[in-house]
Design a protein around this nucleic acid. Structure first.
Length: 770
DNA sequence: GTAGGGTTAG
């Protein structure tokens, strides 16, 4: 078509002069309608022809040219033409206003509207329609209301187009159902689009009964056949697979073709109901696939823990040279986060740069989470800083990234302060994210600051915030405060009870924990997959096998035994109570044993001193393609060190660091120290503690020195401990015991006296059995 | 000749 225009334009001026306007008109019209790109050069050529053939007075032609200039985004040329036009009508003005609105230049559009009214040009229903459509976000509602006033002045409130845009605005910008309904009922004429607007408005608000009523009125009373739009709104009201299938069925009943828009909505809904095979069928049946449908299928599979396939779709897209957009990128990255797949993430990062989305808020928020989960905090922060318009989710992602780190609370608090400078409204999700960074006593100050912020803010009654506070105090070993925070929660849910019971269990208050279990049940909250493991764990530590068995029976009845956390708690409970047979049975019943279950099995053997068995489980673990985590290594290392397998301990330690790239924590070092200690290799043990040690590691070393009566290492260990932990009585006692063991009574008494002098007291011994 | 509704992501 553009070629034909070019041919016409190349004809001589004489041939065209009289008939040019007549000939050009259909071409101009078809150009204006085409979806193919039109260049400025084409517009300029047509413009010059219009001038030379003296057609500029033909308003409909110049209006169309104006539309062409606006369509290809050349507002300067459009304005130039506009200024040159000897005559203008309402279409001229509306075309330019609409073009500005489409490009997002609201100020320019409203300025043009004022100029229009100043020039005594009367706006019509089209003018109002485009203006009101632009005012459909809450921030522009004020302007919209003023325009509504002007529209009433011109008597256009009951017009189908103008009124329809009003309905849209009241729903979207004001959430004002009543005004939207009033305008709808007063409209002189209502077509399918008008009905769809009402249906979609109520679907958005969540008033599904009205949606159904409107739908049957539209179809049964007015005989209007639903189209894609109607069905998409109906889909929003579905809460079960059965309902989704019904709507899908309606599409064929009404002959509505499942094209990309309805297809995307269906894929999304089927995915939410877990029916990925239906998603796949719809996706495969699409002849024309757009970004919406690709993005829907990718996120649909991700939602159902099918990240591999989601990534496969993404790669397929890239192979087919489909241009990816920000939705596709963020959806794919989400899959990478869930699968812990950094390699694909890096590839997606490449595409992100290629298509210019590196500063996109949605994409960067997921990518930073991915990098942070691999410990690449500097890269994560770089991504965060580059986001041009950071929204609250981006801030929360960055805060959570630091919250995973040890001692991340300082970073989180800094970010919180920085955020407070940009907004006065801090939401509970952000505060909960900061609380997650408070994991030990040293973070308590930050935790308390957040607590006071919560009390001062409007989220103080939020259950989520309360639960996070209980958890924070528990992690910081402030049990009294944890309980106070628990009492303050107005609506205690399953999470609140699980947190406080877990807190008691982890802090040696198992009996109290079981008392709380009873209170929870009395409060009408049943056991869940969250509260059961903590309650079972309380039984394990009390060796309360009778209660534990009851909880196991409850887990069986409610079908919770397949949950890995419930399962591992039961395995652990029976093992701790010495009942290995039942523990084994529960392990065998696991349908898909994962890391958590295997860790429970390894720890179980470690505790019973069955190192060989623990090592065997570890090999099975690896054979099953699972990746051991720090807890796995802690279990297997302690299994080896407890029985003095020095070589095995060192091999596993090396495996952890070199193959699995896990950074050893103080507990892992303690195991190595223990192994050396038991083998009498005290000097090597001392070197490790000296470099990486923590308080428990020092204690382990000291008791090893006692067992081997090694005065040389024992002395320097005790001295170091007295320096590091002056209020601890252990080094004095152990030193004194070492001397006693060697028959050096005087030295032994000297250390006992020293201890008495500086007022360090040994707690009285106690027995579990009496 | 200017205009309206519907789909996807963190």
């Amino acid at each position: 078509m553009i070629d034909s225009i070019r041919m016409i334009l190349q004809e001589s001026h004489a041939d065209l002069c009289g008939k040019f306007c007549h000939l050009l008109e259909p071409f101009l019209l078809s150009l204006a309608k085409t979806s193919k790109p039109i260049t400025l050069k084409h517009c300029n050529q047509i413009h010059s022809k219009l001038i030379t053939s003296q057609c500029t007075s033909q308003l409909h032609l110049t209006n169309t040219l104006l539309r062409l200039y606006s369509k290809c985004g050349h507002f300067r040329h459009a304005h130039h033409l506009f200024d040159q036009m000897p005559q203008k009508n309402v279409v001229t003005w509306t075309t330019l206003i609409s073009a500005h609105l489409r490009s997002g230049s609201f100020t320019k559009a409203f300025h043009m509207f004022n100029l229009m009214r100043g020039a005594d040009e009367k706006p019509n229903e089209y003018t109002f329609s485009v203006l009101l459509r632009a005012c459909s976000s809450p921030s522009l509602l004020d302007v919209g209301l003023q325009i509504h006033g002007v529209l009433v002045h011109y008597g256009l409130e009951r017009d189908k187009f103008a009124g329809c845009s009003l309905v849209y605005m009241y729903f979207n910008a004001a959430n004002d159902v009543d005004d939207a309904c009033r305008i709808f009922h007063e409209l002189l004429e209502r077509d399918l689009v008008t009905w769809n607007l009402m249906i979609s408005g109520f679907a958005q608000v969540g008033d599904f009964s009205v949606v159904k009523r409107l739908f049957s009125e539209m179809w049964e009373v007015h005989g209007l056949k639903p189209d894609h739009s109607t069905l998409v709104s109906l889909l929003k009201c579905c809460s079960s697979l059965r309902e989704v299938k019904q709507i899908h069925g309606l599409a064929s009943k009404f002959g509505a073709d499942v094209e990309v828009v309805l297809g995307s909505a269906l894929v999304d809904l089927y995915a939410k109901c877990g029916d990925t095979s239906s998603c796949r069928k719809i996706f495969d049946s699409m002849e024309e696939k757009d970004n919406f449908i690709w993005s829907s299928i990718i996120s649909g599979f991700t939602k159902n823990s099918r990240g591999e396939e989601a990534v496969h779709f993404f790669k397929d897209m890239c192979r087919k040279k489909v241009k990816v957009d920000q939705h596709v990128l963020s959806g794919t990255l989400k899959a990478c986060v869930e699968m812990e797949n950094l390699n694909t993430g890096v590839q997606v990062h490449g595409q992100m740069i290629k298509y210019g989305y590196q500063n996109d808020c949605f994409v960067a928020s997921v990518l930073l989470t991915l990098y942070a989960s691999f410990g690449e905090l500097a890269d994560a922060e770089k991504l965060f800083r580059r986001i041009s318009n950071k929204d609250i989710v981006a801030w929360n992602s960055m805060i959570l990234a630091y919250a995973w780190l040890d001692q991340g609370s300082a970073h989180c608090m800094q970010l919180l302060q920085e955020l407070s400078r940009t907004t006065s409204q801090i939401r509970s999700a952000t505060l909960v994210a900061v609380l997650k960074s408070c994991k030990s006593k040293s973070d308590l100050r930050a935790g308390r600051q957040v607590h006071s912020l919560i009390m001062k803010s409007s989220v103080s009654h939020h259950t989520l915030a309360g639960n996070a506070l209980v958890h924070m105090y528990s992690e910081c070993r402030e049990i009294v405060d944890a309980y106070k925070a628990f009492v303050d929660i107005v609506w205690k849910d399953d999470g609140s009870w699980s947190s406080i019971i877990g807190s008691y269990t982890q802090n040696g208050m198992e009996s109290e924990a079981l008392e709380l279990c009873k209170e929870m049940l009395a409060d009408g909250i049943a056991f869940s997959i969250y509260s059961l493991p903590v309650c079972i764990s309380a039984c394990s530590q009390l060796s309360a096998i009778d209660v534990g068995k009851q909880l196991h029976i409850f887990a069986i009845k409610s079908g919770y035994t397949h949950d890995v956390y419930v399962g591992s708690a039961i395995i652990d409970m029976y093992a701790k109570c010495g009942n290995m047979e039942d523990s084994d049975k529960v392990f065998v019943e696991q349908l898909q044993p994962n890391e958590v279950i295997y860790n429970a099995m390894i720890s179980r053997y470690a505790r019973h001193g069955k190192s060989q068995e623990a090592i065997e489980v570890f090999s099975r673990f690896e054979k099953n393609g699972l990746t051991p985590n720090p807890v796995t290594f802690l279990a297997v290392l302690s299994a080896c060190s407890h029985v003095g397998y020095v070589e095995d301990t060192l091999n596993f330690f090396t495996l952890m660091v070199n193959k699995y790239k896990i950074k050893p924590e103080s507990e892992h070092y303690s195991c190595v120290v223990d192994a050396f200690g038991r083998a009498g290799r005290l000097e090597e043990a001392y070197q490790i503690v000296h470099k990486y040690g923590s308080e428990p590691a020092w204690r382990t070393l000291l008791s090893a020195c006692r067992n081997h009566n090694n005065i040389k290492v024992g002395e320097k260990t005790a001295m170091k401990m007295i320096e590091l932990y002056p209020s601890d009585h252990t080094p004095y006692i152990l030193l004194s015991n070492i001397y006693t063991g060697e028959g050096k009574w005087e030295e032994a008494v000297k250390w006992r006296e020293k201890m008495a002098k500086i007022n360090v007291k040994k707690g009285p011994g106690s027995s579990w059995l009496i």
